[in-house]
């Protein structure tokens, strides 16, 4: 196994580094499997707790500041050069729901495939070899951002954004919500997205010196409960 030494990601930017790579990566059409997952929204809809744009926004805000923040920090830390295998362990400890651990690894494996095609990198190859069943998706995302020559803050933005677009897209399909209203929800969340991304990137930089424990561990009990409820349903539209 290769030895990983912490290095700030931006100093290691690849020659083809391009800001637009972030747009490619964060595009909902990036083929990494996200379209089949609702991020807990399907269970929250069934529980009668997401019913329209207002409750969707509250759901997304809660998810963003909890699991979104954790994902953003893990991704930023991987971009910054922290050991991806230790980050993978940290992600496990921050994910008490086995269904969510399985989902995170499945999506990590799917992202690895797309990432290795788009931005081939020995670090992605090494992680894929060490975790053939998939590493946690945010860790893979962070290494992908690193391979694309982008920064930890970029990784945090991408992860934070994903944490709200999944439920938003799912809610459009599940409740036939007006897509303009849902886009307005996402637009209203953008200040929160910036705040969470900045917080995550800052934690990732601190983690370089102070260790993984300073990475956020914000949790949302209902998201964990939804994930296990959802996993038992015989009939559902989304994989999670």
């Amino acid at each position: 196994m290769p030895r990983w030494r912490p290095r700030p990601g931006h100093e290691q930017a690849a020659p083809r580094a391009s800001r637009a790579a972030l747009l490619v990566l964060a595009d909902g059409r990036f083929p990494a499997g996200g379209h089949a997952h609702s991020g807990g929204a399907e269970a929250a809809v069934k529980a009668g707790r997401i019913t329209g744009p207002g409750t969707l926004e509250a759901f997304c805000r809660g998810r963003l500041h909890t699991s979104g923040l954790v994902a953003a920090a893990l991704a930023a830390a991987a971009t910054a050069g922290l050991d991806p295998l230790l980050l993978d362990e940290a992600a496990d400890a921050r994910t008490p729901s086995p269904s969510l651990r399985t989902t995170a690894r499945k999506l990590g494996r799917q992202l690895t495939r797309a990432a290795r095609a788009a931005w081939p990198s020995p670090e992605l190859d090494a992680l894929a070899a060490a975790r053939p069943q998939g590493a946690h998706q945010p860790v893979v995302l962070g290494l992908t951002v690193r391979a694309a020559g982008l920064t930890p803050l970029d990784a945090a933005h991408a992860a934070a954004y994903e944490s709200v677009t999944g439920p938003a897209t799912a809610a459009v399909r599940l409740l036939s919500l007006d897509p303009f209203a849902v886009t307005a929800v996402l637009a209203r969340l953008t200040p929160d997205l910036d705040e969470v991304a900045a917080q995550a990137a800052e934690a990732a930089h601190r983690a370089l010196d102070e260790g993984m424990d300073v990475l956020p561990a914000a949790s949302a009990p209902l998201l964990d409960i939804y994930a296990e409820q959802h996993a038992t349903w015989p009939v559902r539209l989304f994989a999670s």
Partner: peptide, 14 residues
């Protein structure tokens, strides 16, 4: 995820 054509055409990763 309610989009069967996506899974066989646009995002075949799963």
């Amino acid at each position: 995820g309610a989009c069967p054509h996506t899974a066989i055409r646009d995002d075949i990763s799963a």
